[in-house]
Design a protein around this nucleic acid. Structure first.
Lengths: 102, 102
DNA sequence: CAAAATCATCGTAAATTTACGATAGGCAGG
DNA sequence: CCTGCCTATCGTAAATTTACGATGATTTTG
């Protein structure tokens, strides 16, 4: 019984929950660097990103997974490697949703 | 020596670092709720927000501090209470910076 | 088929975040 | 002044995140 709860609790709707997840994904320097890199190099492999970041391959792969789960990037297996790119639809949705929020 | 570092490391510029901090601040449900509430109630006290969230007063105050440090809101002491509102300049900057990123 | 290359996942320490009660500090009313 | 109200900060557990090496899975090359 921490709060009286006499008033309704503000809840986030589905869009806002998704937006929050995207914000969280973008709220880490390494992941922001990845997004920045992908916006300049629209199509690249995991290895390219690993070379450019001061992080171990496992860590980069982990960050890529976070961005994938947030829907911001999509990766396609291409032979032995994986190619990543920005998800343009998600980016557009993200921008639009920020306009709704503020 | 974890990386060869033969290539330059991608670094974030000052703007991107600040943007990342804002993203991180917005990447938590409670803080997103606060922002949502402030966008509907442009001027309100800490107590108003505490009533609306299912969190203890200390926790809300902590979240408000994160948003303040990110520059997204500003609080002014008003008598015995503190009044909070969105920082419109920061919001505008945030929106513009997203346009630069993507 | 064996070896090398590429990447994801696992297991796990260390660091950070989150949430809370308790406490402190400032301001208004009696 | 004292008391009550409002909020920030402190101290601290629990949960989550971050980063790494090691390992696996898959594909191409020799």
């Amino acid at each position: 019984m921490n709060t009286k709860q006499t008033t309704k609790t503000y809840n986030l709707n589905t869009d806002e929950v998704r937006l929050t997840q995207m914000m969280k994904a973008l709220g880490h320097p390494a992941r922001m660097q990845i997004i920045h890199y992908l916006s300049e190099n629209p199509q690249c492999f995991t290895g390219d990103i690993v070379e450019v970041l001061p992080l171990a391959q496992a860590t980069v792969s982990q960050h890529l997974k976070v961005l994938r789960n947030a829907g911001l990037i999509c990766g396609t297996i291409e032979g032995p490697a994986t190619s990543y790119c920005l998800n343009d639809d998600a980016v557009a949705w993200f921008k639009a949703q920020i306009g709704v929020l503020f």
